[in-house]
Design a protein around this nucleic acid. Structure first.
Lengths: 283, 283
DNA sequence: ATTAAAAAAGCGAACGCTCGCTCAGTTTTT
DNA sequence: AAAAACTGAGCGAGCGTTCGCTTTTTTAAT
């Protein structure tokens, strides 16, 4: 798994390998996808999403020419995400939206029949993006829980990086969804957590991870992934790249769950061991 | 409203997170506060908060008799938190609030002059609760970063447990704050992160923790604390008590950051931990 | 190429409603 | 009877939504 690290010396004791077999295969390199390679794999550009959006709502969108429709949709959606993320979807009036996007009130209603419909259209793209990106992990990861977990973290970060405003929107407006949408959001969220929990459980069964409560641990990983898009500006301010964040979360999680069944360092006693706990030990 | 050093009170840790051996252990073990002991130390009941609120806004609240004012304030605030957390503060109309709280429109305006003022009053109590509870960690933790970190996690979880609707409110409505409030929220949030970072840096300096990037690690811990109140219902559904959550986060974080070059006291066997957690599940 | 009819796209004033907020009047407390 | 507390209809503003109308584009006959 991501224990071996490209730009650090190989014998760093700080990270124990997970299993003996890994140790005996020094040439193995984890395949790390970069943000770029993720973008090469999936097209989650505004234009691509709006194209899918148009297809999905051809019956309700009254504009005939696809080109025109997609172009307008892009303006509408872009503006909606900006305004809604700034002051909330409810506080964004359709007059705001019209003025900012350069369309008229009437024109807006060519694309949706209700403000709530607009909200649901956006949510729909978010949730379908999640299933597309996370839905089918590469088959060769099936037998490696650690890699699969890493792949999940990585893919989630990259996806939410590429569609950040969409995810913030879905996250913040979730409670205002017209029930159907709220359930959709809940379902989607739980399914992600389930994938994480499955990888954790699998790894625990194989003795790779040491996890007391798989479900609870999965619950702790989820907010780490959400923080990337919810607090995106904080990380931008600090100059953390998506790749770095993946690395940090991966290390953080990996160290926390790694199996300690194989001792890695001889335990030397020191005198002042009142400080033994570190937060690490169960108190 | 000062600290009462009554940690040693023999109230049973009702939740049963603690293994039986704990009670027989001498006091070198870190003192774990229970939620109950936290509540004994600070009074963050609705009534107490509304009393402070009244004092802070005596000039703008037109009701004369404190008793009456506090009682009404409690109804107003309680209802506001409920409605706002259900559908958002902006979507909650003052007519909703009046009807649900049993007051008239006019009566509401005895307590605030603007809907935004109501929002700011609530935010004010949240941020002052944060500084009261987290502002001055017990002095005897100054020399022990691990304990101090644990204390921070613990106190944060207990505080947000006791004031959960308040924190959800502040968290969700933050972006709609009238700038002054938004800055206040940001400042408060950053200061919490700073406290965590300080403990981490301290521990790293002393060789207790092994942390590549202290700031980034602190950034990863924060969302773990926020998840407790933002997704409170998820944890309730799964029967996780505040004490258990503290335990889980503490373990998770502790393992992730612990220095592996520094010897630790003998750890309990894995199976012990596992059964401890399992036994801790209330249902 | 010109042009006229038809179709599509675009527009924004107007409608009914709900909002935050006020205040003249009523009820309750002192 | 004075003071305090309380009331809810009413105000203007702004909301989501509609629709008769104008403008632009397409089509097709000349």
């Amino acid at each position: 798994m991501k224990r071996t690290q490209s730009h650090q010396k190989a014998d760093t004791p700080s990270v124990g390998t997970v299993s003996g077999s890994d140790q005996s295969r020094p040439q193995w390199r984890p395949q790390r996808r970069s943000l770029k390679s993720f973008q090469a794999e999936f097209d989650f550009s505004l234009e691509a999403i709006c194209t899918r959006m148009l297809e999905r709502h051809r019956d309700t969108i009254r504009t005939q020419k696809p080109q025109v429709a997609v172009a307008k949709l892009m303006r509408i959606i872009q503006t909606t995400l900006t305004l809604a993320n700034r002051k909330g979807f409810h506080s964004m009036s359709l007059r705001d939206l019209a003025a900012e996007s350069g369309l008229s009130m009437g024109a807006l209603y060519t694309y949706f029949d209700t403000k709530d419909t607009l909200l649901m259209m956006i949510l729909g793209e978010v949730s379908s993006a999640v299933s597309e990106a996370l839905g089918s992990p590469p088959g060769h990861l099936a037998d490696d829980p650690a890699k699969r977990l890493h792949w999940l973290l990585e893919t989630h970060v990259y996806l939410t990086e590429v569609m950040q405003p969409w995810f913030v929107f879905a996250y913040m407006e979730a409670k205002a969804f017209p029930k159907e949408g709220r359930e959709k959001a809940t379902r989607s969220e739980l399914s992600t957590e389930k994938m994480i929990a499955d990888a954790l459980a699998d790894g625990t069964d194989r003795g790779l991870f040491s996890i007391a409560n798989v479900e609870l641990t999965a619950s702790l990983i989820k907010p780490l992934l959400q923080d990337w898009y919810v607090k995106r500006s904080k990380y931008r301010r600090r100059g953390i790249s998506p790749e770095q964040y993946v690395q940090a979360v991966s290390e953080f999680v990996g160290t926390a769950i790694q199996s300690r069944s194989v001792p890695k360092a001889p335990r030397r006693r020191r005198s002042d061991q009142r400080s033994e706990i570190a937060a690490a030990e169960p108190f």
